[in-house]
Nucleic acid binder design. Structure first.
Lengths: 212, 212, 212, 212
DNA sequence: CATGAATGAGCATTCATTCAT
DNA sequence: GATGAATGAATGCTCATTCAT
């Protein structure tokens, strides 16, 4: 009997948890859409609620306030990078050059998938309360680390020059983000694939050892 | 007698014009300072007025509204680039590599001089009304052009590979701006001079012809 | 069979009624605690529910709305006075002075027992909807009546001067309530017992016949 | 010439100051009226603004927030007591009994003049932020002091018994306030003058020496 | 009976903008 | 030219109340 009850409670809890997750996602998606287009400050909670098809009050049952919602939106995006980058590197095989290239490529692709949202990240990070900022910087560093490792491995293997790996990673992320930040200009003369290809050529040349 | 009057009016006009310019500058400087620190939306016109030591009302005699003031602030910064970049290139002599290097260096230095303000440019450009946005994109293209020319000259001279000059310029400007955008990270392991030196090495390698 | 059913229903009803009363009391106690401390307006139904260990919705099955809950809380307190005052008077014997004294004492003691709640009564009575207000005034008058009678008896017996009994009762209740209302000040120089003793001396003197 | 300018500025400042005072009073009066009737929490700033015939925003140029406005309203009332009580005592001559009686009478009259507002004081004091509360307690003690002195003088002169003067003052203020707090009941059988007269008789009897 | 997710009206507060002086 | 008092629309957030489960 106790078991039956436990089981029922467990099912109930799972269902509840699923609903909570669905709501969070629903709100997060709506917020990402509206804030990306309109900008954080110009976005009213009312607008987010409308886009999500719920009431204002409900947002506050999932996110403490507007700032926390922004943090959640940005974190949500950065988690994409943090999760996908290592996976892409791992999938690229053993060759350091391939691994490095895969890292750059996936970054650009993630950016393309959430172009407006990436812009939001750049625009609004400064606005954030201190603790949100910490989480964000953390995620950025987590994303950077596997790329840095790939570059370091390449240097060790002698296929890259002895450059500062941290700086190269910085360049990689920056070039990827730029596809969002400067899309108004870049898209006038390049497709994403062209951008990736050409930037990759420059990037590789920048770290390759000079032929003797 | 008519002539005398004209002359008086002209003198009057000049004097007036000078005063107008002084006021504009006074407000612009105040706005740049406050907005750069606090962010555009979090900056009240009252705060700008106080910083400038004038009344709110007076701002509206020089700038139609808050948006226009923001445009003016951003334009003011971008004009720095537009003016200083060609000058630096010209001062660098005839060697395409030197000219290209000078362009990158001056960009970084202008960024350093107005680090917060450059960040402002990135954060708030999207908010702008269409016509302001146009002026800004225009200025960016104007800044880009002399650099592009330097790269194109280098390609023609055979000291650079046949890369897409527009893309290289994009990279140059981006790397310079990054010193402001990612200062929180970069400054942890590099000084500006080190940043310039190392990025320049990468940049040059990226466009240099492969040795046979 | 019908009888058996009736009996079962009756037992059921009694059981139900007992449960209803228990719930009401549970909610009332929680509401009194929270509202007394926090004030009516600053108290959310959520807070009352939490304190009572139940859900918000359940409160609404026992009290129509927040105002009605407040009325119930206040009525609950006033019923204490209405019930205890006559009892204390009856227990004081036949001497009008003793009866009067017992009335004052019990009032002060009831106040002390629910000091915060008494304050609540004063603070929030005005807010109430008309019908709640009526019930409250009624209870106050019911409480006043036995005291008035005691005073009237004393006057008839010649141990009190021919004062307006209603006014004296008003003073008695007021002085008792004041122990709650002005506790911040009074408690700085008096204990409750001292307060009772000294006010009683003044009160008695105020109604005692002047010696010839 | 400098003198003329100074004079103009001075006149300007005075005019400004007068306008500020007029506005403050206008808002304070409106707030007192509305809050007294409706209660603090149920009063919206919009309602205060409308009653004052100004815009909401303007209130915030004179009072930091709603709480501060409430403090100002209450202080405004308490200042009436603090100012008028000593004046009335002084005007009552040298006889301690007269002075004491004058104190009680003026308290009742001030209460009558601002009956609703006095009720507000009782209802909302608890709501206040700590520093506002301090100012209010201070004013109450300032009001009490001259009355206490009058009682003490009476005791020294032998016309009053050796009662605790502080407690008597507490009673005096309480009885005066009660005219507002319990007006719904008292006014049913007494006019203010009757109330003053009869309470005064009781009060005097309570402190008078027993005839031998 | 009991729950608590969901609603949405309501309110304090801010701030760009205007205009009488 | 210059001021700053005055406006009032806009917004984040709360919370009494309902109702599907």
């Amino acid at each position: 009997m106790g078991q039956a009850l436990d089981e029922r409670n467990a099912r109930q809890a799972a269902r509840t948890d699923a609903r909570v997750q669905r709501r969070r996602r629903q709100i997060l998606d709506a917020a990402t859409e509206v804030m990306s287009t309109t900008g954080f400050h110009a976005t009213s909670m009312q607008a987010v609620a409308e886009r999500a098809g719920i009431s204002v009050g409900l947002i506050y049952q999932y996110f403490g306030n507007k700032d926390e919602l922004l943090v959640a939106v940005i974190v949500d995006i950065l988690e994409d990078f943090r999760d996908q980058v290592p996976a892409a590197i791992a999938a690229a095989g053993e060759d350091p050059v391939d691994r490095f290239g895969a890292a750059f490529r996936i970054c650009c692709q993630v950016v393309e998938a959430k172009r407006e949202a990436v812009t939001l990240t750049y625009r609004e990070s400064r606005t954030l309360p201190a603790d949100g900022l910490e989480r964000i910087k953390d995620l950025e560093l987590q994303t950077a680390e596997p790329i840095r490792q790939a570059v370091a491995d390449g240097i060790d293997a002698g296929v890259f020059r002895a450059v500062d790996a941290r700086l190269v990673v910085h360049n990689v992320l920056l070039l990827a983000h730029a596809w969002a930040l400067k899309h108004w200009n870049l898209a006038r003369f390049l497709t994403l694939d062209q951008y990736i290809e050409q930037e990759w050529a420059l990037l590789l040349a920048s770290v390759s050892p000079r032929a003797q």
